[in-house]
Design a protein around this nucleic acid. Sequence first.
DNA 1: TTCGCTTAAATGTACGCACATTTAAGCTAA
DNA 2: TTAGCTTAAATGTGCGTACATTTAAGCGAA
Lengths: 261, 261
Amino acid sequence: MTVRRLDRSGGQSLWKQLQEDLVRRLRSGEFDDAFPGELALVDEYAVSRHTVRQALGQLRTDGLIVAERGRQPRVATTPEIRQPMGALYSLFSSVEESGLPQHSVVRALDIRADGVIAARLNLEGSSPLLYLERLRYAGDEPLALDRVWLPAALADALLDADFTHTSLYNELSVRTGLNLDHGREDIRAINPTAAERALLHCPPEAAAFSIIRQGTAQNRPVEWRHTVVRGDRFALSAEFSANIGYRLTPAPRTTALAQGW
Amino acid sequence: MTVRRLDRSGGQSLWKQLQEDLVRRLRSGEFDDAFPGELALVDEYAVSRHTVRQALGQLRTDGLIVAERGRQPRVATTPEIRQPMGALYSLFSSVEESGLPQHSVVRALDIRADGVIAARLNLEGSSPLLYLERLRYAGDEPLALDRVWLPAALADALLDADFTHTSLYNELSVRTGLNLDHGREDIRAINPTAAERALLHCPPEAAAFSIIRQGTAQNRPVEWRHTVVRGDRFALSAEFSANIGYRLTPAPRTTALAQGW
DNA sequence: TTCGCTTAAATGTACGCACATTTAAGCTAA
DNA sequence: TTAGCTTAAATGTGCGTACATTTAAGCGAA
């Protein structure tokens, strides 16, 4: 075993150096088989167990590893998606609850370049992107038009995937090991363009949601997504309280709310 | 200073007991002035500083307190309970962040009966309701039309309140002691009616959000609310991660998102 | 009064030790 | 072979110490 030396000049704390080095090694796949135990790290880095535990504690709260008493820490299989969150999952599970079958028509799945999107993914303008465009159905009627860009460097394994029935995140997790652990959404009320309206079979007067999502996995931008959802077929529902915070719920309470109100 | 004793029989770890006791005391408002330092807690609970730090570390990752080197820990400015949550508070604070002055024009404030609304508040059809209708401005332009019904039995003290600058929840808390602790929202994308469009000075093609909120305080229905928000002036923004869950954030990230997308 | 320095106090980091509790491996006996 | 026990190993908890670093209070001189 190689002994690794940390910088003890005082520039940065030992446990932080250790934590970052472990993240680096973990991402390189070095620990896919087994994560080293505390005492092994004590020997390897020549620091106290206290320092090792401080570094591991950070990794644990970040959801990168899980640890239990009596057994060695393990790399977290899923970086803790306690509940798939966000408006898009809410959309998916609302349909699920309604009992309607859902499927997608893949309108595009290719590699292309787009400087504007690349910049939003913190990439250079010429970076190749994987582009996926789907028309999502609930029952026989279209529900949403979904466009998503991912860095090709991370996601090119998805090029030959079949997205008519599987979700992007599931495929992403299985094929690349990436799991979204952070993100943000901007949700707007819009009137669809004529083209979108035609694709979605929108009634002439129906408004729509525009959902823009940026997702990251372990601090790396992974997706930039734009979804247009028919407003006459979908409502965002949420519950909130002091205990649970703000939580999107799968189904609108009553369809009556869709009427005049 | 009273010395507090923890259960050392081994049922639960000391730091967890300490952490829970501190949460309890913190919620009771005991630490609103100053949070005790590590050494003070060492004396008070008769545990080692290591144990105290373990408990405080948990409080810190939970976001209840903030700590810096050399100064005592302080209660986090956002006291854990994002009390005013939901899309309507997000609306309010978005305007606040933008720097635009906001005020309301009260279009109605009276007692009336409405069987449909009363039923939604779990009241008899003939029960009197306090009705408040406001046109909310951000700057010189209307932003939202806000209609809310409350049981008159609970809220009649609000009849002579001035709602041009104060919020409903603030007035409700001050005058009746009621604080919303639970609620649900249904958010839809709609096209405003002609009347709403006129009131809101909507551009002809602008969509809007329809937000229906039911709020309860201590299991009693307190409000039934319907708000129409101009879609060209407002976006719902949210962040989500494994740690913080789904949280609405005050401001959209870039106004550029409002354009084509 | 006010500016600047000194000093005390508080948290951050890092080391050590001991024991409890749980897991997993190994061994023994039927 | 297998069931059950024993034992080693690993993490969890808790205590102690020491020093570094930063903040804030106190003090003194201009």
